[in-house]
Design a protein around this nucleic acid. Structure first.
Length: 482
DNA sequence: ATGTAC
């Protein structure tokens, strides 16, 4: 599939609106010369064009430099739809509702952890339940899961999983408004009741990392990650089977109703619901339940991390000395206001594999970070590095307050599995000084560094394009995975 | 991502 790309500047490529019948806006792809060649290799650019055909889409159908093929929408896609005329498309949020990333700081440095790496890895692996379909740290009854759906991370804190101040360091304070448990199916509830506080599988992980390079020492200091060799922890996880079931339920519903609403979609996977319809509002209410479950989930997992550190390092790693730096979601739809074609507009911003990146002084940013901008947490791959950035002004002008979310897959899961055996991968990681504890070795190869683009290229693009600013680079020393 | 298919 050859998609015509017009180069806009060093880091931007336009898919013209006349490329395909039915496009309501042009596409815009963020990539440099290296990344654009990798991106051309799958069908994700066609998906960028497909998204541009959605009813009520405004501005551009955007693709971040970590874009790759996904269900309907590309992963790494951003699209905003008009609140009055537009739709919400569950495939534009993703199956893992509020998949996201949480970064925890410590007062430890690399040398203090060196001799305890195996013990710490064992302790983390024991404390954080993982694996496909695995059950979580806390079983919920019918009443409790309703509270989780409405309260999010605050429920977890009230139950003793963490500190009050964790909430202000969480996007939306760990609770998306408008959640309605009655919009969630019994089946989703059944799946969710046993999975709170679990890591799952796939690309989800808990990593112990060290600050490896600092790009902006002032910003890094404000975020509490200002010391080279400082030990930090990243958790990447979402809403598990609960959010997955919500997505599946509403995609099925949307597909059944497309004809009634008069939609003729270029791809069945773009199934969508008018924002002003009963069904569209129900999806947003259910999505908020999924988002809140995910925030509670990451809150429990962070509690597990603090417990594991305390058991290994005692008073040198008490919860107060392990503050949450920030928690971002990268699979979500948010109602926000932007200037579109010179006019202020309320839109539904779909971020699927895309991180919010609000600039300095935005009221949604915790006060302590106001001058720096919203922390943007970008996991790379398990062998190389991850990044911390801060949102910048360009995101508000260009990308509906959004930037990339990770390295972006370069090889399919099947291709990755063929490229390297888990044994060879374990040896490679060990040689790089990375200690791994994994639930299923068979799945490890699918997540090999070789399966991903170089995250450094990805973050350089969003930095150069003015969407977010580089703050720090993190290197993994322990990886715990499903 | 996911009780990796109903």
């Amino acid at each position: 599939m050859n998609i015509p790309l017009e180069r806009v500047d060093k880091n931007r490529w336009r898919i013209p609106q006349n490329y395909m019948n039915g496009m309501n806006v042009p596409g815009m792809v963020y990539a440099d010369d290296v990344l654009i060649e990798q991106i051309r290799n799958d069908n994700s650019l066609k998906q960028v064009a497909n998204v541009a055909t959605l009813p009520g889409v405004v501005g551009h159908s955007l693709a971040m430099p970590d874009i790759h093929w996904g269900y309907g929408f590309p992963v790494g896609g951003v699209a905003a739809t008009d609140m009055e005329q537009g739709v919400v498309s569950p495939g534009g949020i993703g199956f893992d509702i509020n998949c996201g990333v949480r970064l925890i700081a410590t007062e430890l440095v690399r040398d203090q952890v060196k001799g305890q790496v195996d013990k710490l890895a064992d302790e983390l692996f024991r404390t954080l339940p993982s694996g496909v379909g695995g059950s979580g740290m806390r079983k919920l009854d019918q009443h409790e899961i309703r509270e989780v759906m409405v309260q999010g991370a605050a429920w977890a804190v009230a139950q003793g999983y963490g500190l009050e101040e964790d909430l202000e360091a969480t996007e939306e304070n760990g609770c998306l408004a408008g959640a309605n448990p009655d919009a969630v199916s019994k089946q989703a509830v059944q799946r969710g009741m046993v999975q709170l506080g679990s890591l799952g599988s796939g690309n989800h992980f808990c990593e112990v990392q060290v600050v490896d390079h600092i790009y902006d020492s002032e910003a890094a200091k404000v975020l509490g990650i200002g010391q080279v060799n400082q030990v930090v922890i990243t958790i990447h996880c979402g809403s598990r089977g609960f959010g997955h079931q919500i997505a599946e339920d509403y995609i099925k519903l949307a597909q059944q109703k497309q004809q009634d609403w008069g939609f003729e979609l270029v791809d069945r996977q773009l199934a969508c619901l008018p924002l002003q319809s009963r069904e569209g509002k129900d999806y947003l209410s259910a999505m908020a339940c999924g988002a809140n479950f995910a925030w509670a989930n990451r809150q429990l997992l962070m509690h597990g991390v603090r417990q594991a550190f305390a058991s290994v390092f005692g008073r040198r790693a008490r919860p107060k000395e392990m503050p949450l730096v920030y928690d971002v979601c990268h699979n979500i739809a948010k109602i926000e206001e932007y200037v579109v074609d010179g006019e202020k507009k309320r839109v539904c911003v779909h971020r699927k594999g895309a991180t919010r990146a609000f600039p300095p002084h935005h009221p949604a940013i915790p006060e302590k970070y106001r001058a720096v901008g919203q922390p943007v947490l970008i996991p790379g791959d398990m062998g190389r590095y991850s990044f911390v950035l801060a949102g910048a002004e360009g995101s508000m002008e260009q990308s509906f307050g959004s930037c990339c979310h990770g390295a972006g897959r370069q090889k399919s899961r099947t291709a990755a599995k063929k490229a390297i055996t888990s044994k060879d991968l374990m040896a490679q990681l060990s040689a790089r000084g990375v200690t791994v504890r994994v639930h299923s070795k068979g799945l490890l190869s699918e997540e090999a560094p070789q399966a991903y683009k170089d995250a450094q290229n990805v973050v350089n693009v969003v930095h150069d394009a003015g969407l977010a600013k580089l703050v720090a680079r993190l290197k993994p020393i322990i990886v715990v995975k499903g």
